[in-house]
Nucleic acid binder design. Structure first.
Lengths: 305, 305
DNA sequence: CGACGTTACGAATCGCGTAAGAATA
DNA sequence: TATTCTTACGCGATTCGTAACGTCG
């Protein structure tokens, strides 16, 4: 048994159990992998793949079990390489960040700039996705860290770092009736609402607030990001409910933001990454920069709490 | 990087960083491992071991990090081999059981016999140890499963299976004053007590019971197993407090067992094994036999609860 | 000096590529 | 027939063992 053989198993699953394609990915000819597979199965003493004649169809039960260990080994191997690169003070590499529009636009710009200055050789890939996919991206090893608010349920394979706490605001044109008097859920429920798509940026907290008050909000438009929402609020379609951080006092001065922190539960945005993943120092640096930025934002809004 | 090189790292740590001894363990000459280590360090690009001149002294910080992954890989590799052996219906192997005297003597005999009949080719190693060591034995890979009652605190690397619930009894000679009237903690505290050494077989529950009642038991003898305790009870030294399962109605008919289940909290004996360890089918069979036996014992004492 | 690690060199092994053959869809 | 996998064979690379050489305590 050797690492290449185990890598072959991984690639065979990736390629839908096609020896030729796996061979290509390993940069060797097909006959080579054929023999390696035979050698491995001979060594193990029982087949790893289901076959119809010569064709591979899938994994045997043994193969399924083995695959889990193979993934472990693959991860550990990559970690060792990352560690070595890191200790060699290798300032090249790539940082894959999975996040949503809201965070990418309103939280990340400053940390990313700071990061670029510190690590000009590290490339940054921003994987924008819907919140439900962020964790999957981690598990699929397509992202190193994820930044999101929703859908971070119990998963003991993840490390979670609370980043910052925020609340929702209602945004309306300056002459809107809601700007007079106290805002209540009842008054909101009477208006047409524009807010995030289900699963995005604290939408579940919004729904819970109305549901607990036994109200049925009239959500006439749901979008993945606050820019779209604000655009339609400006067109007079109704009341927007967005994250406080998405209201920019400068650019959005034509809109009024009404604090909803006492009506809708506050949300916590977190940083998540795989427990089993080795984070290179540049990655830890980015996380620190992010936490620092979140701290600043938070202080700015809470006046020094 | 290959598996042999990583195995070499493991062996180097095991041999106190001695290339010659590691070479011996790998069944190759010393010069071979010297070169393999050089190749690996060259590939990683920075040293894994601290050196004084040519001698290896220990791990570099990088080496420490790498070792964790190496252990992971080693475990996964062993798992793959176990799996293959298992699916090949290999009925040979070894079962390492870490446990205490109490369990080895009163719980395990029947399951072990049953196991021997089912898997005559599998060797059984019984590692008797004090309860605090049982978990360590698992982590040191010197035992596959551990059976114990105390000291199984939160450890997310372990799988825990509750096995059976039992309580303590007081054992006294037949003419002892305690045999008359209700047994209370107060009356027990007035007697010289013989029981388990700290850390053994529910001793902590005994201490807690007296402590909660603000009593100070007079423990004049502490031993690791109930046989020793019973011996001294027979000599009239005092009242023995032992596990109910350690009182054998046949052999111990010269002693009287007094139920303490309402005075001292019941204990739960558990089976523990490493989450990351693959358990061969014979191992799972043994666990099942154990649970079944525990069930029987339990029913026997509780008359069909 | 003795234990330990490194370097040099030839030999055995391992694994690859080419090429041809067999089986499946 | 086209695709996929297996087998045969020769070559090159890797890794080993022997042996001689540093080096540290």
């Amino acid at each position: 048994m050797n690492l290449n053989q185990l890598e072959l198993l991984r690639l065979l699953r990736e390629t839908d159990y096609n020896l030729s394609k796996a061979a290509e990915k390993m940069h060797v000819v097909q006959s080579a992998v054929s023999r390696q597979l035979q050698l491995l199965e001979a060594e193990l003493g029982s087949p790893v793949f289901e076959r119809h004649g010569k064709r591979l169809l899938g994994l045997t039960p043994l193969g399924e079990h083995i695959m889990r260990e193979v993934e472990q080994i693959h991860q550990a191997k990559k970690n060792i390489q990352s560690m070595a690169d890191d200790f060699r003070a290798n300032r090249n590499g790539t940082l894959h960040i999975a996040t949503t529009h809201t965070q990418a636009k309103y939280l990340l710009p400053v940390p990313v700039q700071k990061f670029r200055r510190q690590y000009p050789g590290v490339k940054i890939y921003m994987l924008q996705s819907s919140p439900d996919n962020l964790i999957d991206l981690l598990h699929q090893h397509r992202a190193d860290i994820a930044i999101c608010t929703e859908k971070l349920a119990e998963d003991d394979r993840l490390i979670l770092k609370p980043c910052y706490r925020w609340h929702h605001v209602a945004v309306v044109p300056q002459d809107h009736p809601l700007t007079g008097g106290d805002v209540t859920l009842q008054r909101l429920a009477a208006e047409p609402i524009l807010t995030y798509s289900p699963g995005f940026t604290g939408r579940s907290a919004i729904e819970k607030a109305f549901h607990d008050a036994e109200l049925q909000p009239d959500i006439i438009l749901a979008a993945a990001d606050s820019d779209v929402i604000k655009t339609y609020v400006r067109l007079g379609l109704g009341v927007g409910i967005i994250a406080e951080t998405s209201y920019e006092p400068g650019k959005d001065s034509d809109l009024v933001a009404l604090d909803l922190s006492r009506l809708i539960a506050t949300s916590v945005t977190k940083i998540a990454y795989l427990k089993q993943l080795y984070l290179p120092s540049y990655c830890r640096y980015f996380i620190d920069a992010l936490l620092e930025q979140a701290q600043l934002k938070h202080l700015g809004h809470c006046s020094g709490q």
